[in-house]
Structures are given as structure tokens and as C-alpha cells.
């Protein structure tokens, strides 16, 4: 694998070079917020690399869009027209954070489980992840507690480090190598001093992570709290909105709806959330999760107990978005810490 550098001021040139062979997605400034999107002429401006620690919406929306047409249909002769994305397309995601890339590896398990989901999987296959190491993590970040870290390159194809005037690039996979070769005329060779600067940055960034949680024992403990009043201290102030789940890079629930016009229509799927009342409402009107207590319990237990039981990995990467954006300070670290401290009486 190879390493390179390029001048930071030449980012747009670099993305232009990439765009010759790839559809390029990057963090964009969209009416005040940073969100990943396709880089297009006349579209929203590129966010500066130090404009964001974590984008407001995680880049999961690139592989799993909030609203996605599965197929279209027409009355009469038209039949159905599937909208499965092309696995052979070449898409580059520039500036993704290590935690958000790690989330893809977690969601892979779900979308490749009993029914391999071609919509997610084809996009995943066609996407090259050019990650950007964090140099100033948020006060709500806790990635180091979940096997990640601000400079973790394990789930990336190319890792980038912002060294001030220069960006250091290191290829991690063959996919990443191929991409760098396609723009090699825009890259310069790196020197050992660059590597040293990156290593220093890694150490410094990890030391800036202020929050942590010891996840030992949590997957086993949460089911024991199923009927415990424990959850009320959090659900009493829960608004029941979709912020924590929609902005979670590993939340992956969706609803499927038919949208019918007069002569044609589409079947589409859109993000859904276990925090909404209608998520578990049965056709009969009965709701097995009747209040926000059960819904709060489900969100936390799914991430920290059910998912690890089914797939062997906690469905959280510590990006901190659910903490940062929660309007009522429901803090998942706080919940987990308190869950460990609760004493549960043995049955009988």
C-alpha cells in the first residue's frame, strides 16, 4: 500500500480529478449544516475540512437514502421497473469519518443477513471510502470505547490526515489503491516526516476523547432490566422524536409504502424509527410498545444487547450524535452507566 500528500488548497482540483472516474460525494455546506452529498457544479459548496467534526446527518444516507424507490409500476402494459443500483458504478465518498465507516461494517451484517439487500449491497460494493482522521473530536464522542478511534483506518479504503497545509493520504485497500492511482498525477510522494506527523496527530486526537463507557457486561445486563422501572427516568422526558435514530449511523429500520398516482406509482422505502408510536402499532390498534418507556428501552437494548446477541457486535460506534442532538439530554452513556449500577433481584 502506498502513501501520498497533496496541498490542502488543491482539494477542489483533486475532487475534479476523481470525478473523471468516480461519482464523488463529500461533506457539503447546506444552508448552515454539513451533510454529505454529490459534488456538483452549481450545487452546495464543499465544507472546509475543519468545518465539521461529525456531519449532522451521517453518511449512511449515501448507501441507505432516507427515501428510496425500490421499483416503479404502470397500469396496463408497463409492468414493473426495478430501481436496483448498479454494483459496477464507481462512487467515491470523500471525507468520511472513521466512526461512520465503521458503522457501514456493522450495517453490512444486517443487510447481508437472511435476505441480502441488493439496494444497500450494490451501493456498498461500488463505494470507495476516503476517510478523514479526526483531529478535534466533539465533546460527545466516545468512539474509543467501541473499538474505533479518531484515526482508526480499519474500515476505510484510503485514510487522510489533515496536517495543516497538506493532506497526507494512505491507501488501506486495493480499492483505495486503484482510486489513488487514478489521480496519481495530482498527488506527491510522502516523506517519513509526514508519517511521523500523522502518528503524533493520532496520539493527540485519542487523548482528546473525553467520554467513555465500559461495555463489559452491558449486553447481558440490559435484558434483565426489561420490566424494570429503570427506563422511566429517561423516557419521562423523551419527546418521542426521531432525532436519535435518524441521525444514528447504525440505525437501519425502514418502512415500505406504495405511492400511487393515477396511472402509475412506486414502491418506496423510507427510514422508520422505533421511537415513533406507529412503528409497532398493529392493524388491530394494539401496540406492544405502548409508551416511550418501552420505546426507549428498545432503542438502547437493540444497540447494546439484541444486535450483539444476533451479530456479535454492538450496534454503536460512539459518534455521539444521539447525545449531541437530543433536545432533552437523553445521553446514552448516562443510560448505560446507570444500567450497570442497577441491582436486579434474582427471580424467585
Amino acid at each position: 500500500m502506498a502513501d501520498y500528500v497533496f496541498q490542502k488548497e488543491k482539494i477542489e482540483e483533486l475532487l475534479g480529478g476523481m470525478a473523471k472516474n468516480y461519482e464523488v460525494h463529500a461533506p457539503l455546506l447546506n444552508a448552515g449544516i454539513v451533510r454529505f452529498g454529490k459534488v456538483e457544479e452549481g450545487g452546495p459548496a464543499l465544507a472546509k475540512l475543519d468545518d465539521y467534526s461529525n456531519s449532522s446527518v451521517p453518511p449512511k444516507e449515501l448507501l441507505f437514502p432516507q427515501t428510496e424507490t425500490l421499483f416503479r409500476y404502470r397500469l396496463g402494459t408497463g409492468g414493473i421497473e426495478p430501481k436496483v443500483p448498479d454494483a459496477g458504478a464507481k462512487v467515491a465518498v470523500f471525507g468520511i469519518r472513521p466512526c461512520d465507516a465503521q458503522a457501514f461494517a456493522i450495517v453490512d451484517k444486517l443487510f447481508g443477513w437472511d435476505y441480502p439487500d441488493p439496494y444497500f449491497q450494490n451501493r456498498r460494493k461500488s463505494t470507495v471510502l476516503i476517510g478523514l482522521a479526526c483531529s478535534s473530536p466533539c465533546s460527545t464522542c466516545f468512539c474509543t470505547s467501541l473499538g474505533g478511534g479518531p484515526t482508526n483506518d480499519e474500515y476505510l479504503d484510503v485514510a487522510m490526515y489533515d496536517l495543516g497545509n497538506e493532506i497526507y493520504l494512505k491507501t488501506v485497500t486495493e480499492k483505495g489503491d486503484e482510486l489513488c492511482k487514478s489521480i496519481s498525477d495530482l498527488l506527491e510522494e510522502a516523506s517519513p516526516s509526514h508519517l511521523e506527523a500523522c502518528q503524533n496527530q493520532s496520539k493527540e486526537a485519542a487523548s482528546k476523547i473525553r467520554r467513555s463507557i465500559d461495555t463489559n457486561g452491558i449486553p447481558e445486563k440490559l435484558p434483565a432490566l426489561y420490566d424494570n422501572p429503570f427506563w422511566e427516568q429517561f423516557s419521562d422526558r423523551c419527546l418521542g422524536c426521531g432525532i436519535c435514530t435518524y441521525l444514528c449511523p447504525t440505525c437501519h429500520c425502514f418502512d415500505i409504502q406504495d405511492e400511487v398516482e393515477v396511472f402509475d406509482g412506486r414502491r418506496a422505502r423510507m427510514w422508520d424509527t422505533c421511537m415513533f408510536e406507529e412503528y409497532t402499532r398493529h392493524a388491530s390498534g394494539h401496540n406492544p410498545r405502548p409508551t416511550r418507556k418501552e420505546r426507549t428501552r428498545n432503542r438502547v437494548s437493540h444497540k447494546y444487547s439484541y444486535f450483539p446477541t444476533n451479530f456479535g457486535v454492538i450496534a454503536c460506534v460512539g459518534c455521539g450524535r444521539c447525545i449531541k442532538y437530543c433536545p432533552v439530554n437523553i445521553d446514552i452513556i448516562d443510560i448505560l452507566e446507570k444500567s450497570i449500577a442497577v441491582e436486579v433481584k434474582e427471580a424467585g
Binding site: 447546506n30 444552508a31 449544516i33 451533510r35 446527518v57 432516507q66 419527546l239 418521542g240 422524536c241 426521531g242 432525532i243 435518524y246 441521525l247 427510514w271 424509527t273 415513533f276 433536545p327
Partner: peptide
Amino acid sequence: EKEFSKCIRCYSCRNV
């Protein structure tokens, strides 16, 4: 148009 196209319909504005 710019503002509404950002909305993710989390309904936090309604619920709060």
C-alpha cells in the same frame, strides 16, 4: 426551498 429540503421529518419540532 433550501430550508425545507434539509428537513428529515424527525418531528422533533412537533413533539416538543
